[in-house]
Nucleic acid binder design. Structure first.
Lengths: 227, 227
DNA sequence: TTTTCAAGAAATCACGAAATTTTTGTATAT
DNA sequence: ATATACAAAAATTTCGTGATTTCTTGAAAA
């Protein structure tokens, strides 16, 4: 956003959404159109409109006459988000396993390869922060590809919304962005089961991958650090 | 909307949403703020903002620089909506069965009683149109109550969004609003299984209740008329 | 110290006009 | 007759303003 030209509404939308998801605002923080307009070289009305849009999707809280706020994080929210993400992701993966062709297998392989590459570098690194942005994108790319052949664009869209809100919560609660050393074998297990067309196995692998967030909430897990 | 005073933004939102769901606009029809503002005695900007909100929820289509449209109906959409509705409703019902207390049982009984009352009147009536509005509300109330004790407000909200879009599609494809004579025993089966805390049975009853829309799409069912 | 209240500051909301883009209709050329 | 170019009309998007509401501040009373 250095260009002096006014960016398109959609650019602003995408950037704001990204900032929200990646924890650029602290939970509960007020999001004021009059302040934000400076960041994008547009008017307050435009920002307001965009904030409004995002409040429907759950990325910002909105109260009439009280403006917009970055959503408060809570364990309950993360629990519900995890629960729903598991449900949608298992259903979508099952669909892809049933319908996916060789092209899908290839794409899944490719996205996992990139993800594994980054994750192995992160594992052997003290500070993961420089990787976090790329890893985030790769993790999404892998999970997105997993569902991409399920045949239901509605399921895919719904899952994306939940996935992003899940990420938003994880970032604000765990400053690791959700990366753990264990994600490496977990992602591998998902990939293998999917390529073997093993629906129950894939379902289980996805549950195992995300179960940790449920347990975290339930207070059963202490360590969340990477490495 | 006869009052000359400007209604609150939320009133307009609710009414527009209702019109969209109940088929007041034909699929593909343009939704222009400049036209619509007359219906509500507000400005075009307000209408625009509301339309934006609803585009996030999927009740209207939006294209940049091209405005808003009532969504095109398609069999594929109904299929995907049905699929997702089954998934969410089964999961939510299972949660309610696990967590629901006596109060939940009572509410479920009450909402089913009202629903059954209307449906029996509709069954013995030639023209169902006068009942359609009340029936719609009752059907929603029953299914909402079914999930109300599941413990996840996120699941409830997500389900509501899908339910409403499902209804929107059904209305535009089948002018019966989705009522069939068979819904009466189907609703009863759902109620009974839920009260017996029979999760597999309830899941199956829900699937049986909604399966007909899948089959309709697949061309396996001809008659959709009520009675 | 805590609570109440009022005045000032700040933010939100609805509105309509200006600017941009798309669509429509007509004339011209191939 | 079809296609292209151009102009007029219509619709969409953006943005600044004023009215209304909410939030903050600080002094007075309990």
């Amino acid at each position: 956003m250095i260009d002096t030209h006014a960016p398109s509404q959609n650019d602003v939308y995408l950037d704001m959404r990204n900032r929200l998801i990646s924890g650029a605002f602290s939970p509960g923080q007020k999001l004021m159109p009059n302040r934000l307009k400076a960041d994008y070289n547009t008017s307050a009305s435009t920002i307001r409109e965009i904030l409004f849009r995002m409040s429907c999707e759950g990325f910002v809280d909105f109260q009439e006459q009280r403006g917009f706020r970055c959503p408060q994080s809570s364990e309950q929210k993360l629990l519900e988000l995890t629960h729903l993400r598991i449900l949608l992701e298992c259903e979508g993966a099952a669909g892809s396993i049933r319908n996916g062709d060789v092209e899908w297998e290839a794409q899944l392989n490719a996205s996992h390869h990139k993800l594994a590459h980054i994750e192995s570098k992160m594992k052997s690194s003290d500070d993961i922060t420089p990787f976090v942005t790329v890893w985030s994108r790769s993790d999404w790319e892998f999970h997105r590809t997993l569902l991409s052949a399920c045949g239901s664009s509605l399921l895919i869209e719904t899952h994306k919304g939940i996935y992003d809100r899940f990420r938003q919560q994880v970032v604000s609660e765990l400053r690791t962005f959700g990366f753990r050393a264990e994600t490496i074998p977990e992602h591998k297990a998902i990939l293998d089961a999917a390529l073997q067309r093993d629906i129950p196995g894939c379902t289980k692998a996805i549950e195992d991958h995300l179960r940790v967030y449920r347990d975290h909430v339930a207070g059963k897990v202490q360590g969340f650090s990477a490495g």
